[in-house]
Amino acid sequence: MSIDMTSAPAALLPPQLMRTEALLTMSGLSKTYGSVRALRNVDVTVYPGEVMGIVGESGSGKSTLLRMMNLEDTPDQGDYRLQLPGKDDDNLFALDRYQRRMLCAHHIGIVYQNPHQGLLMRHSSSGNVAERLLIAGERSFDVLRSKARDALDASEFPLARMDARPAELSGGMQQRVQLAKAIALEPALLLLDEPTTGLDVSVQALVLDTLKRLQRDRRITMVLVSHDLGVIRTMADRVLVMRHGEVVERGLADQVFQDPQHPYTQQLVHAKL
């Protein structure tokens, strides 16, 4: 697939991404819930190894877009392709429930803002990670255990507590369990929906450090949703600004923050500074 010039003008791409094929391409996404138009003709392109930040006010459709990327929901219109080795890049919204589950288990990891959404609170933390591997067909107890330990370790989770229940852990630790679960199978795509919202500032910084380190060491492609411009600014290579279900601005993070074009983005950036 060649780079889509309308959704990602070449001038806005960082040089190292200029000639790569996109990992994720969503085009023409629209979704209406009752009378709410949650997404309106949204296009997104994400390149391998980059962090795509999505910002926007509450209700602008960020989580909805991420849920679509995780195939939890289907839009009214639009299609979604992932460039995965050995796979056809067919429209993923055409997949059935079973195919979606298998694709997500193997290739997509997600961290939700609310750990209750992503974790089984009454199972052990290592078990939460192991569930991923079990869905993918791993049947050796020792392998499950060592892979769960590795993923928790990479998420900088204290291994002495790997069998504690998430219900007994702090919010920051719960996010690390979610992260371990998300990266256990080395996904092509890591989705993060407000992963640090609700954590206190110092814990937030630690979790962000872990994410940065993961990104640097493993070059995991990430889509990071946050309404916190500071978080996006420290993490993202490129940014998409959403409002009322529409993308109002997109570009390199530095450009968008230094020279916002859309009045809404200008307002956001200046309110923040």
Binding site: R97, R101, S124, G127, L134, I135
Partner: peptide
Amino acid sequence: DADYGRLWLTLYEQIV
């Protein structure tokens, strides 16, 4: 969907 991951997980949890 032959979605038995949770069931396997209960066995994992018992061993843990």
